[in-house]
Nucleic acid binder design. Structure first.
Length: 303
DNA sequence: AAAGTCAATCGGTACA
DNA sequence: TGTACCGATTGACTTT
């Protein structure tokens, strides 16, 4: 299992450098060793022109991407090395560097973290430590990155859900509109028929059905057929179990409604996967189901 | 300079 | 009680 923790960074580094000996080394090293036992010449073999600056070369047994040491060639900014961050004299209580200003993670680090996040969004302690070592970060930083990443994912997911819900709503509204049109047509037909009806139609019909309906309740024979006397008052659809009376809403109200529909507390905070249909299904059908949240079926996909 | 991004912090909650 | 997580927020830094 441990080996797979390191796999992603190695793959990424390999992709970036296409170094045959490194690929071989990675495969061999992965099978049985953790990062600390990675070949000592690893960094030497992986050195880029940036690492030729001797004071930036990391310890020989550390398992770090070249870009994670010293200057980041991708951002042109200096990143703290793992050793720098392990210097206890310069660390505050939580392990962060005293007086250090915020530094963005470099592209290589972010890529690796992203890949790991795709494999599992929850960070097991072991994986955290391994990743931290591999990336030259403090475990705390890795944990924070995952935390923030989950928050970003959730925000995006909410946006997706909102879009799906909005489309669905618009479809329902269109259907409702067409039903209203149809309803009006039928009403017009009724009125037209009414003009041709004989005044005592109701009575005659009641008489004709009297015998066959004798065992019904008194009121049942009056079910209407008496359309001539009952005006159609309400032209609206019954309220939707979830959506409010659709036709009464204007656009801002619709937007507001949709906004509230996407409130975390109103919807399932867990979705089975990334598919919008599924998310929407959860929104509408599984309001109370909190069993699944992330798109990864198994949080421990490293095992 | 304003807006956007993101690492980090803070305060609260859940759980073993 | 300690730990991990979350949402909200801050502030450094980047992009427009």
């Amino acid at each position: 299992m441990l080996s797979s923790l390191i796999e992603v960074p190695l793959q990424l580094i390999t992709e970036a450098h296409h170094h045959p000996s490194f690929e071989q080394m990675a495969c061999n090293g992965m099978a049985s060793s953790s990062s600390s036992s990675f070949p000592s010449n690893f960094l030497f073999q992986m050195q880029t022109p940036y690492e030729e600056d001797s004071h930036l070369v990391p310890p020989s047994n550390s398992f770090l991407s070249p870009n994670l040491q010293g200057m980041s060639p991708l951002l042109g900014k200096r990143c703290m090395s793992y050793d720098e961050m392990l210097n206890e004299d310069e660390l505050s209580d939580d392990g962060s560097a005293v007086g250090e200003k915020k530094k963005r993670l470099n592209i290589e680090q972010v890529r690796t973290l992203e890949r790991n996040f795709e494999l599992g969004n929850k960070l097991e302690p072991e994986r955290k430590v391994q990743l931290a070592k591999a990336l030259g970060l403090r475990p705390r930083q890795v944990a924070i990155w995952f935390q923030n990443r989950r928050a970003r994912w959730k925000t995006k997911q909410l946006e997706k859900d909102y879009d799906v819900l909005k489309r669905q709503f618009e479809a329902i509204r269109a259907e409702n509109d067409s039903l209203l049109v149809q309803n009006k047509k039928l009403q017009a037909e009724i009125l037209a028929l009414r003009g041709r009806e004989t005044p005592d139609l109701t009575i005659n019909l009641n008489k004709e059905t009297e015998g066959s309906c004798s065992n019904r309740s008194e009121n049942s024979s009056e079910i209407n057929l008496d359309i001539s006397r009952k005006p159609v008052v309400e032209n609206r659809l019954p309220p939707h179990p979830i959506l409010p009376s659709l036709q009464s809403l204007n656009q801002p109200e619709i937007d507001q409604f949709l906004h509230h529909s996407c409130k975390p507390e109103l919807q399932s905070p867990k979705v089975e996967n990334d598919a919008p249909e599924t998310c929407f299904g959860n929104l509408l059908c599984n309001m109370g189901d909190q069993s699944v949240f992330w798109p990864w079926p198994d949080h421990h996909s490293f095992h």
